[in-house]
Amino acid sequence: MEKKEVNKIEIEGVGKSFDIKGKSVEVLKSIDLDIRKGEFLTIVGASGCGKSTLLRLIAGLDTPTVGEVRVDGKPVAAPSVKTGIIFQEARLFPWLSVEKNIEFGIHEKLDKEEKRAKVAALIDTIGLNGFEKALPKQLSGGMQQRVNIARALINEPDILLLDEPFGALDALTRINMQNEVLKIWSDRKTTMVLITHDIDEAIFLSDRVVILSDKPGVISRQITVPMSKPRDRSNGDFMRIRRLIYNEFFENSDIDYVEYYI
């Protein structure tokens, strides 16, 4: 790969349609997007705009109707442990303890001791020491999501796909988790693709924000966030970019603009 700049993920002319009651519904249309190695990219859009579908295509959980998704220059054919995915719900196995849930993620053949060490290191990273033997039902939503993240990190993926991972968490927990994801990103240099409808979250975390409009989902705008991280949410630049994104949303949709100031 002696290209000028390495693109980790290349999405070229991708479209996706689903059959719903015999009718073909176009969810994504001619998406072209390159994501650099180590970039933190966020996709924002209204619900139902196909952003989750796009993520599933990158993950290899779905195949595009037209076009191609490439990771490291190779077309994505099936899911890979090198691409971790984190869903909104923690999706932990309720019958397994915290450590067993994380251990389940391990892909390579390791002996007991190596596994234990790997799991212990990640439990340390997510700050759940003392909860190793706890069952998921004994954890709060935020703690469950931490375990989910640890399970995805255990194979040291170079891409992490996050599908509204903090959507179900309260505001304070969410801010904590955002800081932790940022730390993981700067420690591991993982390429991150985050889906959210929280505009502040998008600006706080990402290098680039991609706005997806709906029906069918097309990229309506891309905004680079040229601020150093960690970012101050009350900073003037932050506000300016937020206004930019808001405008993008409420000019391009048929929702009455004024309604949001009541």
Binding site: L61, P79, V81, F87, E89, F93, F104, H107
Partner: peptide
């Protein structure tokens, strides 16, 4: 949804049956 997690983690069919 749990099955999808194991697909994403490249688990084989036998593991999925036995563990999930």
């Amino acid at each position: 949804k749990l099955l999808e997690v194991s697909t994403a983690l490249e688990k084989d069919r036998l593991t999925v049956i036995g563990k999930i």
